[in-house]
Design a protein around this nucleic acid. Structure first.
Lengths: 192, 192, 192, 192
DNA sequence: GATGAATGAGTCTTCATTCAT
DNA sequence: TATGAATGAAGACTCATTCAT
């Protein structure tokens, strides 16, 4: 799977061949098929891995208590950013999963796993937000909806950032845009 | 191109074959190649079309004067939503363009056109925001950055909405989430 | 299809590759797939051809009137033998169709065609036998059953003949055995 | 080998994999190769087993003395039918051996064994027929030739029966057709 | 301009066979 | 004897692209 990710990064998701992965992993083609029934199964498994990693990080963030809402949000932002900076392709893997038809070609079991992990991600973010929201922003929207908005905001920015490289030479800094985005978000959830 | 879009919608972006497009267009395969040098060229042209359509709408929104910031933002939201509702796959086309490696395989000319149109989109949104911001939110972030955030927010929500159909049976309504997202955004750009 | 047959003859049914057929036909692999959806479809089509050829011959035999039962039987034998001698592999094609799992992998339409042609073969043989039987062998078994027995006898002998070459050096002459078989059959359908 | 036969029956001859056999036998793949050098060797050995079983039955039939020709023939028929009914796939195994190219890929030793056993089968049938023929049908054809015809008749009917299941919904009963076939055969060997 | 048959390189996938343990 | 992970050659099938008509 590490090899598969490396191939995705270097050749692009759609151009990644099983033979490439095998070569990168210093295995034969057949061996790949010993562990993954289909090509799409392998790449979907990559997403599972990303989501698991993500959830571990988010979980750690959630463990911290006695934080204000702003601090909680900051913890979520840091968790997402940290993961992105460790491996900027992680979220792109997820974006590709969403944009491609990979999902249609995998086992129901794997599909369920992915759905489940995504739900977990949202639930953790919701929980982090909820505590701060309840005391400080009692009139804010439902945490579940807000966590989805946060997720969309983040993945939209990542997708843009990644595609920008080939499209748009105009320089803008991901991190600073992200900071502004989170500030806007934080202030937007006002208590009237 | 209309045929190409219909094929993309019904079979999915990655599974769309030139032969399908030809059949849908009631033309022969060869004829497609009279108008598009490469397959990727055709699908990139689709994105150009989406962006042009988008810009026309945004331009109309921009034309209205004497609006408060909130009203301006509402106009942008309506323009984006309207386009999405007329054709939910338009933004997915763009997302696919970003997520796939299509961009790497097209002529420089077409690449430039796409970049140019995207800049136009941002510029129009920036302008819409700028007027309201200058008078009502003098301390807000740069309009260019805010328009990017708005774009990311919207495309992130669309991508999620589209992928959710196959992944996640949990019902949530795109439109209401979008409304909340824009409310949060609008309130977030406060003048301290 | 002529190329496919030649490949079957020279390399054996199970070892015939699409690439071989393409080379033999002086076409590319893709062109084969322009006319046959699946590999098995091509080889099943071969059987259809054999059966059609067979039925034409049998039909001609049937056209002759005013024959005694023995003469009718002789006409059937000659028709079968003639086909076998023109192309000894024709019946082997059918035997392979029966012994292999090809039938499970073809379209229902093609399956139906094969069934239909086989029924036709039996029906023609039945008709040839019927006339002679009615007047000369009134107490014989049903012509349909007898034509099946004749068919089994013939194809059993062909299968044996074909496999014998690699198995059994013991010489015996197909034609003379066939003659004896038909004599036995003719005498066996006695009028008590 | 029992496992191999079960796999052949359930998945079909051509679709039987060594891995399937190993799983069925509750052994590992490697272990299969301790006992059979090649895949074809294993399946050829299956034929040897069938032929041995067949010969045992035929031998028993031969042991009975003081039978008329018709009774002898009946004994042969019963032996063949009994084997067929115990395991309808036995003869199909032999038919597959004949129709496929398996024979070309096995050791000379195994080839000889198969040839030898086939000769034995014919010889036993010949002997059964000979006794009755000599006294009751002095002018009949050579017993060797007649036993080959009998064999062809039987295997032709079996092959037909087996293929019919997937091809032809038209019901006809194997056993009754076989009975008619043997009656015809018995009467056909008349003494003029 | 339009056609669509032909192409063949490119990929996935399978599976008999080996071999270090 | 037994294992079963690893192999990689082989082969079916696809589809963007071309070009003679």
């Amino acid at each position: 799977m590490a090899a598969a990710k490396r191939v995705c990064v270097s050749k692009g998701f759609g151009r990644a061949k099983i033979a490439d992965v095998a070569r990168e992993a210093e295995l034969s083609v057949g061996t790949i098929y010993l562990y993954f029934k289909k090509k799409d199964e392998l790449f979907a498994a990559l997403s599972v891995r990303v989501l698991k990693h993500l959830n571990v990080r988010l979980w750690r963030a959630r463990a911290r208590k006695d934080l204000t809402f702003e601090q909680s949000l900051d913890v979520v932002k840091k968790a997402l950013l940290e993961i992105y900076e460790i491996d900027p392709h992680m979220f792109l893997t997820l974006a590709n999963l969403q944009a491609s038809e990979t999902l249609a070609n995998i086992t129901l079991e794997l599909q369920r796993k992915i759905v489940d992990l995504l739900h977990q991600s949202f639930d953790i973010i919701s929980q982090v937000l909820r505590e701060g929201l309840e005391t400080e922003r009692p009139h804010a929207a439902a945490p579940a909806k807000l966590s989805l908005i946060l997720w969309a905001l983040f993945s939209g920015l990542v997708l843009w950032e990644e595609s920008k490289r080939s499209l748009d030479p105009r320089k803008d800094h991901f991190k600073s845009t992200l900071n502004v985005a989170f500030e806007v978000f934080a202030r937007g959830i006002v208590a009237h």
